[in-house]
């Protein structure tokens, strides 16, 4: 996904001279093409994430469209107060791209995991929170995010994520994309677990349980129209995300459900348990440890479905 980001931002910068790219000392060679084509619009702001967000705020105040890129955990946790005060308070159009969000940097250890980023950013006024499922969604969302008048955070994978879409989907921020239909269970997936979510739906379908799947690429603003329909028509709504079960898509949907008494369907939230992953391992191992494999997610859904 990071290659798609680099490619897409380079293309977008061609059309919009206001786009400025800031990197927190990562992306070695990733942005060579951007730097070569727009040498005055790329800045490595160093290992100083708080500063990077403040600088982005200044660039936006100066009439530009800054895009900030670094590892998700550092972009969000290190610079949270700057995001809140410098970007959200005046509502400045800055796009923060957090690479390797969730468990994308699993092998680097818990310092590099970001399974609470959606929770903390979703709480900030004026902030949009985006989670593309694949490189195609990323490309569509990046262009849309740059049209916003306020700040946006996009959590993306790292590299080698499988493609779900065959081409660039037409995307509206705040409107989920439907990938499968079915009226028994509705799976809402945000981010790069979408291929697994589709496989889970296939498993359910093989048992005769009709399962819809949506890519909820926008967690804030939440697609409330869709939720209203799903909680009326489906029997079970399942959220899947590579994020803590606290405060992510599942949390957002649970909040919505509490506020809507007519929402009849049950809700199951699948996500990262409330724990630090101390063990070493790659992303697949970490997902296994967190119950985020097709097999484990299918079992979890079956358990609730048959209860």
């Amino acid at each position: 996904m990071r290659n798609a980001f680099a490619d897409e931002i380079t293309a977008l910068a061609e059309c919009d001279p206001r786009i400025v790219l800031l990197s927190g000392d990562i992306g070695n060679r990733l942005f060579n093409d951007f730097k070569e084509r727009y040498p005055t619009r790329f800045y490595n702001t160093g290992v100083a994430e708080a500063d990077m967000i403040g600088i982005a705020a200044g660039l936006a105040l100066g009439g530009l469209k800054p895009v900030v890129y670094t590892i998700a955990s550092f972009a969000v946790y290190r610079a949270y107060e700057q995001i809140r005060v410098d970007l959200c308070y005046p509502s400045l159009p800055v796009v923060i791209v957090g690479v390797g969000a969730g468990l994308g940097y699993a092998s680097n250890g818990p310092t590099h995991h970001s399974c609470e980023d959606v929770a903390v950013l979703r709480a900030l006024p004026n902030m949009s929170v985006l989670a593309p499922a694949d490189a195609w969604e990323l490309r569509s969302l990046l262009g849309a995010a740059l049209q916003l008048s306020g700040p946006a955070y996009m959590r993306i994978g790292k590299k080698g994520e499988p493609l779900v879409h065959e081409a660039r989907p037409a995307i509206q921020i705040g409107e989920a994309l439907q990938l499968r239909t079915g009226n028994d269970i509705a799976i809402l997936c945000s981010g790069t677990l979408l291929p697994q979510a589709l496989d889970v739906a296939g498993e359910m379908e093989s048992s005769g349980i009709r399962t819809a799947v949506f890519s909820v690429h926008t967690i804030k603003p939440l697609d409330e129209l869709l939720l209203g329909r799903l909680f009326r028509d489906a029997k079970l709504v399942v959220t899947i995300e590579e994020h803590s079960r606290i405060g992510g898509l599942g949390g957002a949907v649970a909040e919505w459900k509490v506020d809507h008494r007519e929402a009849n369907a049950r809700l199951l939230r699948i996500g990262v348990p409330d724990q630090i992953l101390h063990h070493s391992g790659e992303q697949e191992h970490a997902r296994e440890m967190c119950g985020l494999t097709v097999e484990k997610m299918t079992s979890a859904i079956r358990l609730v479905w048959s209860a």
């Binding site: 200044g58 005060v85 005046p90």
Partner: peptide, 30 residues
């Protein structure tokens, strides 16, 4: 911010200088 003549929120310390750097770079770019 939003008060005439005031662009950013200050009160939490250490925010003005990074923003100023961004403003200065924006001016240079343009």
């Amino acid at each position: 911010p939003g008060t005439p003549g005031i662009d950013v929120a200050t009160g939490s310390l250490g925010h003005g200088l990074p923003i100023g750097i961004g403003l200065a770079i924006a001016s240079r770019i343009q």
